[in-house]
Design a protein around this nucleic acid. Structure first.
Length: 555
RNA sequence: GCCCCUGUAGCUCAGUGGACAGAGCAGGAGCCUUCUAAGCUCUUGGUCGGGGGUUCGAAUCCCUCCGGGGGCGCCA
């Protein structure tokens, strides 16, 4: 109910100041906001209405503030309102409000702060979408974690969310991959074969080639060339996809839909999309190729969709793919792309616009680079030569929780260096343990209480008013932030806000633990504090759950 | 050359229109015979890259300059 209740009340006060008849646009036309003051001394919530509206009201901000207070309707759980600084209205909530927060959190569990802001707005989040010709690396991992957390956040605020992985199982890259695999297979079988210059050279190619040799090598070499090529490609696709899916499962990143590029070709969707573009007059031929006039939609140059030797460029199926997404009824589509793809945004948006889909419905989150390091030394990688540390290796070395935390903790806009040594350390260099430790302590307290024979009585019987220690109040205030923090993180597509918030909750809890002994001879106080622990646990489990990090009961 | 991201404490990063700029780490001083010290308290440390502008108010918005990263194919 906060901050909405305050906003409504202030809007009502402004409306009555306006002479009863709310003018154009109604109360919200004043355009003020209710937000958290940076400094706690300035209350629980602050409204800038008096500053924003001073000009329109023809009054000095502080005078307008006083007038607003004069006309302010009653707000439940409000303890007081003050004018401060240049004209802020600072609202302080009552202790009772925080006890309501405790009851809601303790009774409602980790889902207690869910909202249905997004009801009815189906969103697709498409992420990772690595080509199925090798293992995932750390860059894919970041897209995976960012996309996964965004999907979890959107779900929490009430959007029906579908997670999709798009894989390019058609085209020249796959042909090169299959040729490389076949060569590796032949080598494993003792034949003389060279992996093509423009093929894939990573150690995994040799490894998978050997697997292929062992599984079906004999049969494959007997086949005709075309048949064998098809069979190797199919096996290679399956092998890569299995590796990718398993790796993602290791860090708890599931997908609802695995979408194959081939289906677009097989169904004729690519042709259809190009015909539609042509029909709308957006295509032209030049130098033997077919061009899409993307400059008409703000791109810096036109793009080829069919090459002079009759093959599609990657853009052609991408047009069909994005068209297909919206044909599936998503109100909004979010793509998580690596920084190296940012240049493609204009042309994909152009294709949507050209075909009558509002390009604003497609949102593209760009994740910046991830560099790997070990003990401060950069780990050199070459994708072309296939020399890179795989995501799987990183997970095995540092653990799923630490990986997820690290990849979620920074704004997607920031380039990051993932230091394997640091991520592995179970120290304060690794704040993931700080959050998990808070949760483990909560569980430990419950175990201790039970061992002491303390039974938690029903919530309704607890005298929560006993919770007046500053550390207790601070912890309750932190718990109260969950809903607004999730909303903000979801709206801004900003997973890292959850790690920041989680740290605040953990800090408040550790402080509470240090300052207030929970299980004591004072039965009533013990009951109240155990319920506070329970409420905090709901919040902590919610945060860890949104981050996809495990909540250990003991550490 | 053009486009995107970025420049905030010694380090890694939060904060993107509000009130004296924050966290962790690192540095300094303390706290375990009692519920997990992977914890807590206090403390040192900043011309928010430089300069202009918009605004009642700018780390935040605009312009410009400088530094770092990425992208600019009839490759994916």
């Amino acid at each position: 109910m906060f901050p909405e209740a305050i906003h409504d009340a202030v809007a009502a006060a402004l409306a009555s100041l306006d002479g009863g008849g709310a003018p154009s646009g109604g109360p919200s036309s004043w355009g003020f906001v209710v937000e958290r003051p940076r400094d706690r001394a300035n209350g629980d919530w602050a409204a800038n209405a008096a500053m924003v509206g001073a000009k329109r009201a023809g009054m000095a901000p502080r005078d307008l503030a006083a007038a607003i207070i004069e006309h302010l309707p009653e707000i439940p759980f409000l303890d007081g309102v003050e004018i401060a600084g240049p004209g802020f209205l600072n609202f302080t909530l009552s202790h009772d409000w925080y006890l309501e927060v405790l009851r809601t959190a303790a009774a409602g569990g980790p889902d207690h702060a869910r909202v249905d802001d997004g009801a009815g707005e189906r969103i697709q989040v498409e992420f990772v979408s690595s080509n199925p010709n090798g293992p995932l690396h750390i860059g894919h991992a970041r897209g995976g974690v960012v996309g996964d957390v965004i999907a979890r956040l959107l779900d929490y605020v009430g959007h029906p969310v579908e997670r999709e992985y798009y894989y390019n199982d058609a085209g020249a890259q796959m042909t090169r991959y299959a040729a490389s695999l076949e060569a590796a297979m032949r080598r494993a079988m003792g034949q003389d074969a060279e992996i093509p210059e423009d093929g894939y050279h990573g150690p995994y190619v040799l490894e998978w080639g050997a697997e292929l040799a062992a599984e079906q090598g004999g049969a494959l070499v007997e086949m005709g060339e075309d048949e064998r090529r098809e069979a190797v490609l199919a096996w290679g696709l399956d092998r890569a996809m299995r590796d990718i899916e398993q790796t993602l499962a290791m860090v708890d990143i599931p997908f609802d839909v695995w979408f194959s590029e081939r289906t677009l070709h097989d169904r004729g969707d690519v042709d259809t999309a190009l015909q539609r573009l042509d029909g709308a007059g957006h295509l032209y031929r030049e130098d033997g190729a077919t061009w899409f006039r993307t400059t008409h939609f703000g791109d810096e140059k036109d793009r080829v969709v069919v090459t002079s030797d009759g093959r599609y460029t990657y853009l052609a199926p991408d047009i069909a793919y994005h068209l297909d997404k919206f044909a599936r009824g998503f109100a909004r589509v979010i793509n998580i792309w690596g920084a190296d793809h940012h240049g493609y945004v204009p042309r994909v948006k152009a294709s949507l616009q050209a075909l009558g889909v509002d390009p604003d419905r497609l949102e593209i989150v760009i994740t910046q680079m991830v560099n790997l390091a070990r003990g401060g030394e950069p780990v050199r990688m070459s994708m072309r030569a296939g020399e890179f540390v795989t995501f799987r290796e990183v997970i095995e070395e540092v653990g799923a929780d630490a990986v997820r935390y690290f990849l979620a903790a920074y704004s997607p806009d920031t380039a990051i260096t993932f230091d394997l040594e640091q991520a592995k350390q179970q120290s304060m260099d690794n704040p993931v343990y700080y959050l998990q430790y808070a949760h483990a302590r909560m569980c430990s307290l419950e175990r201790f209480a039970a061992a002491e024979g303390v039974v938690r009585a029903p919530l309704g019987d607890a005298d929560l008013a006993l919770l007046t220690d500053p550390a207790e109040v601070e912890l309750l205030k932190q718990c109260d932030r969950l809903r607004e923090e999730v909303r903000e993180a979801a709206a801004r597509r900003a997973p890292h806000r959850m790690t920041t918030y989680g740290t605040d909750v953990a800090t408040a809890f550790h402080r509470f633990y240090t300052d207030c002994r929970i299980v004591t001879d004072d039965a009533a106080l013990t009951q109240a504090r155990l319920w506070l622990v329970e409420a905090s646990k709901s919040v902590m489990v919610a945060v860890l759950g949104l981050l996809g990090i495990s909540a250990p009961e003991a550490m």
